[in-house]
């Protein structure tokens, strides 16, 4: 603990993020009945692909600071304080902040592209996986060659831990999509930009341009989804039906597995000829 406090001035971003986790958690939970918590969290920035598609781009970042319960925030804060200081000291505070934000956005873009429109996610784990990706990238860059870090038992264990966690994520109530998105974003950012090696060759520059374009394109598609039947479905509901809002509510309940009076309508619409 003493060591941690002594180096506090060198890891401001890690501390700010940890404080933001706790503050937002307290504010979101303050004087709220348990049944009202989902609505409160939605106000604070829970991310659903539909919200992002409707223009709430801020949720791409805000959701990375929100947590649902004590276990969630406890584990994520522990992971942040375990991984963050080392990487922040290595990369520098500004770069670490950039890494956190880009990883968070990367994870949430993956969620927007893969998840159903009403399925919500929250939590900093996508960004934390981005930091883990940065650890892998730094290890690869710092070795005698790219895979020299595999000779170290600790590094191998870290990879196995990550793989095991991703596999366990199939059954656990966590967003593996967000984790993988964050991991890839953090890895790519660190590998190509933050620690580009001794000689940023022409090839690295080509990859930088291509990856930037990909990131921008996927951001754009998350904000303006085009070819996802569910988004078009929702748009059709909103545009064409006089009961658009009611049907959207019904669709939300349908996605959450709650039977509703309008479920039959939703099912009929989803299986109609237009969307086959």
């Amino acid at each position: 603990m003493n060591d941690f406090l002594r180096q506090a001035d060198r890891i401001p971003v890690t501390l700010v993020v940890a404080i933001a986790y706790v503050t937002l958690f307290v504010l979101a939970n303050l004087s709220v009945a348990p049944e009202q918590l989902p609505a409160r969290l939605d106000e604070f920035g829970v991310l659903t692909p539909l919200n992002v598609a409707e223009g709430d781009a801020w949720r791409l970042i805000a959701a990375a600071f929100l947590h649902a319960n004590m276990l969630h925030i406890g584990l994520n804060t522990w992971a942040l304080l375990a991984l963050g200081p080392g990487i922040e000291t290595e990369l520098g505070s500004l770069r670490f902040a950039l890494l956190y934000l880009v990883s968070a956005i990367g994870g949430h873009i993956a969620v927007c592209l893969v998840y159903a429109p009403y399925q919500g996610v929250l939590g900093g784990s996508g960004a934390l996986f981005g930091i883990l990706g940065a650890v892998f990238a730094l290890n690869m860059r710092h070795g005698r060659h790219l895979f020299a870090f595999l000779q170290d038992e600790g590094n191998r264990r870290m990879i196995w831990f990550t793989v095991a966690y991703l596999i366990a994520g199939i059954w656990l109530p966590v967003s593996n999509t967000g984790h993988i998105g964050g991991l890839l974003a953090g890895f790519a950012l660190t590998f190509c930009w933050l620690a580009p090696g001794r000689e940023p060759t022409r090839n690295v520059r080509r990859y930088r341009i291509a990856l930037t374009a990909l990131f921008c394109s996927l951001c754009f598609v998350s904000l303006s989804p085009a070819a996802r039947w569910d988004q078009l479905w929702n748009r059709s509901i909103a545009d064409e039906s006089p009961y658009g809002k009611a049907r959207r509510r019904a669709a939300t309940m349908h996605y959450r597995g709650i039977p509703s009076a309008d479920e039959q309508d939703v099912r009929e619409f989803a299986t109609s000829e237009v969307f086959r």
């Binding site: 291509a210 374009a213 990909l214 394109s217 598609v221 070819a227 996802r228 078009l232």
Partner: peptide, 29 residues
């Protein structure tokens, strides 16, 4: 590199197409 560029351009093309004909964009996807 080519795969990254295809993954970059394809969604944008679909988006442009969806503005004209959403059903066709969905079908193509």
């Amino acid at each position: 590199l080519a795969a990254i560029w295809i993954a970059t351009i394809a969604p944008l093309l679909l988006w442009l197409l969806a503005r004209q004909d959403p059903e066709l964009a969905v079908r193509i996807k």
